[in-house]
Computed example of a mutant assay.
Amino acid sequence: MDHDQADPYFSHRRLLFATAYRMLGSVTDTEDVLQDTWLTWHAADRTTIRSPRAYLVRTVTNLCLNRLTSARATREHYVGPWLPEPLLTSPDAAEDTELADSVSTAMLVVLETLAPVERAVFVLREVFGFSHAEIAGFLDRPEPAVRQIAHRARSHVRSRRPRYDTDPGRRARVTDRFIEACAGGDLNAVLELLAPDVTVWADGGGKVSAARRPVHGPDRVARWILGILTKPQMTGVAFEPAQINGEPSLLLTASGTPAGALTYDLTEAGITTIRLQVNPDKLRGLRPAGLS
């Protein structure tokens, strides 16, 4: 254990995981990238590496870019809406508002609309504070070009970033009320929590039954949610509050095993966007992770 802790890969692993997850939106792909990074690191000539941290971040970044490029083609054939893989985070993850926002499901959906290099530059610059010069070194691009990419990505994200209430206290209360309303099958109680322009997106990936198109409007959304709970596949499934992607959310469990995640955007008008992830291939991150 002492040897592992002295290895720069292990001392920087938290940063590497956090960086890769924000670039990929996939826990499974992130863990694969970290494994490849470890192999690359241990095959490298350490005498030529001046900064292990920079070397490791550069390796992760380029491995992520390769995956992002191939993932775009794969997702063109994805069944139904594609949503990021949810990540169970530690209760203190929301204490750093900026980091919590950058890993929120809403932000990951926005980052998905960036080109791969734009996404990498945005994450490295805006989330983790690497300089334009450092990023240029990671990507083997001129610094002026990186500055332009960073500006373009920042403007893109700013124009699409949802405006919602991030107050954890209010979100926690709404989460508890939502669970109570769903458990009781109370249509009116669910309706009271929804904004007039609410939309629900469900990712079943063709593996389990889920709406293949977004559902709009309070009445349709409320009836759809309560209808889902009565389906045979939901027998024995319970909702419980959990910290998912840095925010109070709902964890679906069946006999104590994660069965899905429900995250949402909240404004003064109520819940505006609901994202339900029930694809069994994308639930690997619904376990204690400790990502900040």
Results as ranks from 00 to 15, higher is better:
residue 79 V to T: 13
residue 157 V to A: 01
residue 116 P to C: 13
residue 143 E to W: 00
residue 122 F to C: 09
residue 140 D to T: 14
residue 95 E to P: 04
residue 155 S to R: 14
residue 118 E to N: 13
residue 139 L to W: 12
residue 115 A to H: 13
residue 96 D to Q: 11
residue 118 E to H: 15
residue 167 D to Q: 08
residue 97 T to L: 07
residue 121 V to L: 00
residue 95 E to Y: 09
residue 104 S to V: 12
residue 93 A to L: 09
residue 88 L to H: 08
residue 89 T to H: 02
residue 93 A to I: 11
residue 85 E to F: 13
residue 76 E to P: 00
residue 117 V to I: 15
residue 161 R to G: 05
residue 133 A to C: 01
residue 142 P to V: 06
residue 79 V to H: 12
residue 162 P to N: 10
residue 164 Y to G: 14
residue 75 R to V: 14
residue 130 F to A: 03
residue 155 S to F: 03
residue 130 F to I: 02
residue 85 E to D: 09
residue 142 P to A: 11
residue 161 R to Q: 15
residue 141 R to A: 14
residue 154 R to T: 14
residue 124 L to G: 03
residue 121 V to H: 07
residue 87 L to S: 02
residue 162 P to A: 13
residue 161 R to W: 04
residue 144 P to I: 02
residue 143 E to D: 04
residue 88 L to F: 09
residue 99 L to N: 08
residue 115 A to F: 10
residue 97 T to C: 01
residue 99 L to R: 12
residue 115 A to E: 14
residue 118 E to R: 11
residue 124 L to P: 01
residue 122 F to Y: 15
residue 89 T to R: 05
residue 125 R to L: 02
residue 114 L to C: 08
residue 119 R to A: 15
residue 86 P to K: 12
residue 125 R to I: 06
residue 121 V to Y: 01
residue 158 R to V: 13
residue 120 A to E: 05
residue 127 V to G: 05
residue 99 L to P: 00
residue 74 T to F: 07
residue 99 L to V: 02
residue 142 P to N: 06
residue 160 R to S: 11
residue 141 R to P: 03
residue 100 A to Y: 07
residue 110 V to A: 06
residue 88 L to I: 00
residue 123 V to F: 02
residue 79 V to S: 09
residue 145 A to Y: 06
residue 86 P to Q: 10
residue 91 P to Q: 09
residue 110 V to S: 08
residue 94 A to E: 01
residue 74 T to P: 02
residue 93 A to H: 07
residue 120 A to Q: 01
residue 109 V to S: 10
residue 122 F to H: 13
residue 121 V to M: 01
residue 158 R to I: 12
residue 95 E to F: 12
residue 109 V to E: 15
residue 162 P to W: 10
residue 156 H to G: 02
residue 104 S to H: 02
residue 132 H to D: 04
residue 98 E to I: 11
residue 135 I to Y: 07
residue 142 P to S: 07
residue 88 L to C: 08
residue 108 L to S: 07
residue 126 E to R: 14
residue 138 F to C: 01
residue 147 R to Q: 15
residue 80 G to L: 06
residue 138 F to E: 05
residue 138 F to V: 07
residue 97 T to Q: 08
residue 147 R to C: 01
residue 135 I to L: 00
residue 105 T to E: 15
residue 79 V to P: 01
residue 149 I to Q: 01
residue 161 R to C: 06
residue 96 D to F: 03
residue 161 R to K: 12
residue 120 A to H: 05
residue 96 D to W: 06
residue 112 E to G: 03
residue 126 E to T: 11
residue 98 E to L: 12
residue 122 F to M: 09
residue 113 T to Q: 14
residue 109 V to C: 13
residue 77 H to C: 06
residue 162 P to K: 09
residue 85 E to P: 06
residue 111 L to T: 04
residue 88 L to S: 04
residue 113 T to C: 05
residue 82 W to M: 12
residue 101 D to W: 12
residue 112 E to L: 08
residue 130 F to P: 00
residue 123 V to W: 11
residue 153 A to N: 01
residue 167 D to E: 08
residue 132 H to Q: 09
residue 114 L to P: 04
residue 129 G to S: 02
residue 144 P to A: 10
residue 167 D to F: 11
residue 121 V to A: 10
residue 84 P to M: 08
residue 76 E to K: 14
residue 80 G to M: 09
residue 160 R to P: 06
residue 90 S to E: 12
